[in-house]
Design a protein around this nucleic acid. Structure first.
Length: 134
DNA sequence: GCCAACGTTGGC
DNA sequence: GCCAACGTTGGC
């Protein structure tokens, strides 16, 4: 069981869109490192759903329900998607500021590699963020 | 294979 | 809206 964080601009695809849609493809990834992370996702893995740009906060959790397959929106055939389904909305969204303030989270890719859109989290990091949302 | 030019992401 | 950071493209 692995933990992840995936980012989306809420103007393009928001948590509310995800809830309305139920199961959906996580498409549009066009970066090799992010793609490689998508390929490592296993059925049942959990991902924090992060709103970038305008909100800059983690708003919910989605579950991987189908492992990677080719991204139908990618003409080159190089990129992949996974299917995800909303699992839980966070009671309190966790802002980027809060994450930055937490010393134990200073090394996560969200901060170190701000442009990466799909990144792994350690279990300890996952648990800490979960705790912060209570 | 190098690297300049260019495009995109995302924080501020 | 700006721009720094960074990834990708393409000419050489």
């Amino acid at each position: 069981m692995q933990y992840w964080l995936i980012k989306s601009e809420p103007d393009a695809w928001s948590w509310d869109n995800q809830v309305k849609e139920g199961v959906s493809m996580w498409d549009g990834v066009r970066n090799y490192q992010a793609r490689n992370n998508l390929k490592k996702m296993k059925k049942g893995d959990l991902c924090f759903f992060y709103h970038s740009v305008s909100e800059r906060s983690i708003v919910g959790i989605v579950k991987v329900v189908k492992e990677y397959y080719p991204d139908p929106t990618d003409e080159t055939g190089k990129f992949v998607v996974v299917d995800v389904r909303p699992k839980k909305k966070l009671k309190k969204p966790i802002s980027l500021d809060q994450i930055k303030k937490e010393k134990k989270l200073k090394d996560i890719a969200l901060i170190k590699q701000s442009r990466l859109s799909v990144m792994p989290l350690k279990k300890s990091e996952w648990s800490l963020i979960l705790k912060m949302s209570l």
